Amino acid sequence: MITSIWNVKGGVGKTLTSINLAAGFAKEGKKTLLVDMDGQSSVSYLLFPEREFEYGDLTIVDALAGTGEISECIYHTNIENLDVIPATIYLFTVEKQMLVNTSSGIQQTKLKKLLKKLQGYDEIIIDNNPSINLCTTNALCACDRLIIPADLEKGALKGIELTLQHSQEILENIDGANFEIRILPTKIQRNKIDTETLEELKTVYGSMVYQTNIRYQAAPIKDSSMKGRMLINDMKSRSKVAQDYRDLVAEVLQEEK
């Protein structure tokens, strides 16, 4: 199963969801690959805190540019069953070049063709930039499932609407694109506004919305990032957000059965 994590609205917990969903799959014994398709390289920085990928290192940039085999761009993490294809800021340059070449008609499915070359992975997670660009289009064309992390701040529903609109355009206009869409409420706080917005979200989108909600808890998230460890492995009772991600992994895997 290939899953893309994307929302045109930034700051919704996209990368946090990508990393913890991938780590959760790996913990459940699923051979998992996490693909960084964001030139900001947040996934790469967080999973390899002591290493900075630079020009010359084989990354998703080389795979898309054709200067390296995708199998050579895979790096093992210190988490059993979890591998990563990192990104660098040069991804923005490659995306620009791909945009120039769209007349050839194959640029939107480059990533899909590359991932088909890989064998042995049960789950592939693609983390994306919030922009609507050719990289995110590639990620959507390659995936079986799109998860839209959505916080409940002002503009949340509009962000979902725009994300769904672009996703639907891809499903309708690009041959071979075929993915289900799910919405993951994130950064939930115990207040009247969030409660009402969450109910509105469920009313509008119904079964598209996961039962699992990711609560807002800044301290555990910051602590796990600074110490380079997986939030999902935090078994402390105070880390409710870690439990939420464990619940999400269980819900997603149950649906795959």
Score class of each variant (00 low, 15 high):
186 T>Q: 04
169 E>V: 04
187 K>Q: 04
183 I>P: 04
191 N>M: 04
187 K>C: 04
230 M>I: 12
196 E>P: 02
225 S>R: 14
206 G>R: 14
179 F>C: 05
171 L>F: 00
242 A>E: 13
174 I>R: 02
183 I>T: 03
205 Y>L: 01
237 S>R: 15
179 F>P: 00
217 Q>R: 13
188 I>K: 12
212 T>E: 03
219 A>L: 12
170 I>C: 02
176 G>W: 02
193 I>H: 02
227 K>I: 08
212 T>I: 02
223 D>P: 09
239 S>C: 14
175 D>R: 14
219 A>E: 09
200 E>H: 07
170 I>T: 07
227 K>A: 11
219 A>Y: 11
205 Y>H: 10
240 K>S: 12
176 G>V: 01
186 T>A: 01
170 I>E: 03
232 I>E: 06
247 D>R: 15
222 K>S: 06
193 I>V: 08
204 V>T: 08
212 T>P: 08
233 N>E: 15
229 R>V: 13
182 R>F: 00
206 G>Y: 09
216 Y>I: 01
236 K>P: 06
172 E>P: 00
242 A>W: 15
233 N>C: 11
197 T>C: 03
242 A>L: 15
183 I>N: 08
226 M>E: 04
247 D>E: 14
196 E>Y: 09
191 N>P: 08
192 K>R: 06
219 A>Q: 13
222 K>H: 10
216 Y>L: 05
172 E>I: 01
178 N>W: 04
233 N>P: 08
237 S>F: 13
238 R>H: 15
232 I>F: 11
210 Y>L: 07
186 T>I: 03
243 Q>G: 14
204 V>P: 00
232 I>K: 15
168 Q>N: 12
198 L>A: 10
215 R>L: 04
